[in-house]
Computed example of a mutant assay.
Amino acid sequence: MKLNTVTTGGPCWVEHGSSDPEAARRFYGELFGWEPEADERPEAGGYTFMKLGGAIAASITPLYGESQPTAWSVSFAVTDADASAARITEAGGSIVVAPMDALDFGRFVIAADQAGAVFGLWQAGRLTGAEVLNVPGALGWVELLTRDPEGARAFYPAVFGWSVNPSEQYTQWGLSGEDFGGMLTMDDRFPPQVPPHWLPYFAVADADVSTFRAGNLGGDVLMAPFSMANGRRIGVLRDPMGAAFGIYAAGPEG
């Protein structure tokens, strides 16, 4: 991801909704070097920021509903959450949680695209979003896994103004010439019960070392690290609580 700061229309936040927030804090603290900073206000509901070198990198929260799975969620920066929610429905998506304020941090929406992949919108208040990107331990890429790639290529540019850089194997999303994410078509390798979803990738210094460390911490390997055509190594892991996430070895450019 070449967006090193929060950019309107780009990914700005990742949140781990966990069945065991304490275990999640331990796992990711050991894996990425994150340090927790809980919002102690009762109305915050156990919300915890995870900091990397003093900068906010992500958050870990309890589950807020019985049907909510333990998973990572990805949010995109917008200037007007209400107007963006309207664009989502116009483009064929749906609103899961209508625009609402998150204390004094900002205003958010939970939505689903035309195929059902869930994502968030974030209109900054006191919290702009992640304070660190594209360094080991921070968000570095976001990937949509979907069974409707053609629908996604129409939906997301209509909502966020993204550019689309397709190839035979992969589609990349961009803003102002800078790619920040991609799209993978879900084929028969994915069980039918796995829904379309957004997957965050975190930058690491060494993908193989991080995979080994995750295993020692109780995680699982969903896709063992491998080298892409450009030489970068990536992998997909699952934490002990059941949430999937990706890792990639950061190069000099992040």
Rank of each mutant, 00 (worst) to 15 (best):
G231Q: 06
E37L: 11
F190D: 01
P11Y: 07
G54K: 01
A57V: 06
A102T: 11
M223G: 14
D82P: 01
P62F: 09
E30P: 13
T70P: 10
R107I: 07
T79Y: 02
L52H: 06
R189F: 15
Y156A: 00
A224S: 11
I234W: 09
S84L: 03
P196G: 03
G92S: 02
V159A: 09
Y64W: 08
S94L: 00
A115Y: 04
A71R: 10
Y248Q: 14
V74H: 02
W122A: 04
K51Q: 13
F180Y: 05
D179N: 09
P252E: 14
A207D: 13
P192M: 04
G129W: 10
Y47Q: 00
W34I: 15
P21N: 15
Q169A: 15
G92F: 01
F32H: 15
T5E: 05
R41H: 09
A71C: 07
P11L: 09
G116H: 01
F49Q: 06
W141G: 03
L145W: 05
A81M: 01
A83N: 01
E40H: 03
L222F: 14
G140Y: 06
P42N: 11
A77L: 01
T211H: 10
G106N: 13
G33T: 08
R189K: 09
A91L: 05
V74P: 02
A152N: 00
D104A: 15
G10I: 04
T48I: 05
G251E: 13
F180P: 07
T185W: 00
A77Y: 03
G93F: 02
P191Q: 07
R147L: 03
R26G: 10
A44V: 07
I110A: 05
Y201Q: 15
A203L: 15
E90K: 05
V96F: 10
R213K: 13
D179T: 12
P196A: 00
T8F: 02
G33L: 08
A71N: 08
P166T: 06
F245G: 12
D113C: 10
D239L: 14
G17W: 05
V164M: 01
D239W: 13
M183W: 09
S167E: 15
V221W: 15
P157Q: 00
D188I: 07
M100C: 12
L31N: 09
D104C: 05
